[in-house]
């Protein structure tokens, strides 16, 4: 059973968002477990504009690769360089040290799932 913190919001593509200024973005424990050990992260650069629902990066494990979808519109203000250097933190602590991006959100985020909705989606 993967952990799904109640205070976060989620996408159907298994990203999580912590509301704030800026908002913090990562991938869920469910996604990290499905990928296996993450060995490579390709993240957007600071200053890049991201669009909700559009691909903004890649998360690669030995077994597979998955795209990172931006959960919100906005501008990237920080990327987790520690996670880029040691992607194993994405598996070890997906909601903490394994965060990926901080995004200055433009406009009103929409279409995100609550923890209850995401729990239903992944069937945990």
């Amino acid at each position: 059973m993967s952990q799904i913190p109640a205070e976060l919001q989620y996408t159907a593509e298994h990203e999580w968002v912590a509301a704030g200024e800026p908002a913090t973005v990562g991938i869920t424990a469910h996604a990290a477990d499905a990928l296996g050990d993450v060995v490579y992260l390709e993240l957007p650069e600071v200053g890049a504009t991201v669009t909700a629902g559009a691909v903004c990066g890649e998360i690669e494990s030995t077994k597979s690769v998955s795209e990172l979808f931006a959960p919100v519109d906005g501008t990237v203000v920080e990327v987790n360089t520690a996670a880029v250097d040691d992607p194993s933190v994405v598996n070890a602590d997906p909601y903490g040290a394994g965060w990926l991006l901080k995004v200055a959100v433009s406009g009103e985020p929409g279409g995100l799932l609550s923890a209850a909705q995401y729990t239903e989606l992944v069937g945990d």
Binding site: G36, D37, V39, S61, T62, K63, N91
Partner: peptide, 11 residues
């Protein structure tokens, strides 16, 4: 079994 814990550690 796909993996028991870490597939990298198993490798």
């Amino acid at each position: 079994p796909l993996r028991y814990g870490s597939d990298l550690a198993e490798h």
